[in-house]
Nucleic acid binder design. Sequence first.
DNA 1: TTCGTTGCAAACATTTTGCAGTTTC
DNA 2: GAAACTGCAAAATGTTTGCAACGAA
Lengths: 131, 131
Amino acid sequence: MAEKARRYSRKREAIREVLMGTESHPNAEWIFNQLKPQIPDLSLATVYRNLSEMKQNGEVQSVAFWDGKERFDGNVKKHSHFVCEKCGKIDDFHFVAHDTGIDEFAQSHYDGKVDFHSLVFHGRCRDCITE
Amino acid sequence: MAEKARRYSRKREAIREVLMGTESHPNAEWIFNQLKPQIPDLSLATVYRNLSEMKQNGEVQSVAFWDGKERFDGNVKKHSHFVCEKCGKIDDFHFVAHDTGIDEFAQSHYDGKVDFHSLVFHGRCRDCITE
DNA sequence: TTCGTTGCAAACATTTTGCAGTTTC
DNA sequence: GAAACTGCAAAATGTTTGCAACGAA
């Protein structure tokens, strides 16, 4: 179970930068499409591999599934999200304070180990309110 | 956009009953496997079709994705859940009161329409605490 | 030189769909 | 009889993987 050494990778950094530089909580393909023009030899598999690795590493987080696709956030600070059920837009919801106290409360009632929670609001974004 | 009339279906009822009769928050295949012995001519496609329809209808809810598979709950009363990151077990978390007030608060700060929220705790279940 | 990283294509796995036959009303 | 429902197999889709080439240390 030895840790795998990690080497620098220009592509991994590019993926990270795209994810850090957007608020759109994209999926793998969106990231790929952003980078493809600048990095023509980028492969979608590389995006998937790095996202999966960074997620396991706690460098990015998975915030939701929408339309069968996993959506990521480069901001690993815990915060809530809003998902538009119609268009799939995902917004940060910073004004609803992330309450770590609730984890402790949950822990005190549960015989497993509670690590964290996720709070996701659902509805229609501004652009999708009009049917 | 006319509503589609709905007819009775023995298989749909069976799916509903399985879902109502378990606390395991199963995926489509699990439901299928439960019913297959009693209903040999049941098709997995039927389970998917009915789950998807009932979900849209608000008769069942989707509570999480785990290992790429969607997990369902026949209890549509809003309540929180706990997901074991190791084995995928999903428990109800009834003792953390579902707070609809938070939806109103969120609504007052968001220019879209907030319908509901989901609160999911993550960690290790009792059986998976020991590494 | 070692071994992590990648592109590519093939493989996978879950879910969806087309269609013809069946069931409900 | 009309239209919903279903099985089956095929298709679609998102994601993973095997492998040989490449790149970092």
